[in-house]
Simulated scan of single mutants.
Amino acid sequence: MNGLSAFYTFLKTEFSEENLEFWLACEDYKKTRSKSKLVSKANRIFEEFIQNEAPREVNIDHETRELTRKNLTGATSACFDEAQAKTRTLMEKDSYPRFLKSTSYRKMTEQASSHGTSKQSHT
């Protein structure tokens, strides 16, 4: 299991995986080159994560939500930057430190270090 999937699994136990899903959706969105795809992806991301009562609504303030709604009219690769930054900060200051203290993280690092030791002894 890699670090990203371990963190995602941890977020699911806290019922906050939508933050990482949104962040990853934004990263994918920024790589989109087609203008028509940008528009459809932007609307899908907004409906899924940003609008009030969205199925996987992220925890952002009203001002950021409204700014993002306005940004949709342009549908540039940067229209989610502010909302994405807010969710990243939330994960950095809240979820990620808890993840680093979690049992699942400790187990993952123990496995990684034991695999690293066993590989080194074979050389």
Rank of each mutant, 00 (worst) to 15 (best):
H122K: 06
T123W: 06
K101E: 05
E110L: 08
S95I: 00
L100D: 00
E110Y: 07
S118C: 11
K107D: 15
S121R: 07
D94H: 00
S121F: 04
S114F: 12
L90P: 03
S102L: 05
T103S: 12
R106T: 07
T87N: 04
H122A: 09
R88S: 12
Q120D: 09
A112D: 10
T87F: 02
S113V: 05
Q84F: 02
G116D: 04
S102V: 03
K119Y: 08
T123D: 11
S102C: 10
T123M: 07
L90A: 10
R106P: 12
Q111C: 07
Q84K: 03
F99S: 04
H115R: 10
T87C: 10
T89F: 12
Q84N: 02
L100S: 02
T117Y: 06
S121W: 03
K107F: 06
A112V: 08
A85P: 00
P97E: 08
A112C: 14
E92H: 08
T87W: 01
H122P: 04
T109M: 13
R98N: 06
H115W: 02
M108I: 00
K101Y: 00
H122V: 08
T123F: 08
K107S: 13
R98G: 01
S104G: 13
K119Q: 15
Y105R: 04
S95Y: 10
T87L: 15
E110G: 11
R98D: 02
A112I: 07
S95H: 04
T103D: 07
S121H: 02
E92Q: 07
E110S: 13
K107Q: 14
T123C: 13
K107Y: 10
K86L: 06
S113I: 15
G116H: 00
G116E: 05
R106F: 09
H115E: 15
P97T: 05
F99H: 03
A85D: 01
A112W: 05
D94Q: 04
R98I: 00
T109S: 09
R88H: 06
R106S: 12
Q84A: 09
T87G: 03
H122W: 01
G116L: 09
A85S: 07
R106G: 10
K119I: 15
S95F: 08
K86P: 13
T109V: 09
K101S: 06
K93V: 10
K101H: 02
S102W: 05
K107L: 13
L90Y: 09
S114L: 14
M108R: 06
K93A: 12
E110H: 06
T117L: 14
Q84Y: 03
A85R: 01
A112N: 07
S95T: 00
S114I: 11
D94Y: 02
T123E: 10
D94I: 00
H122G: 04
Q111Y: 05
A85Y: 01
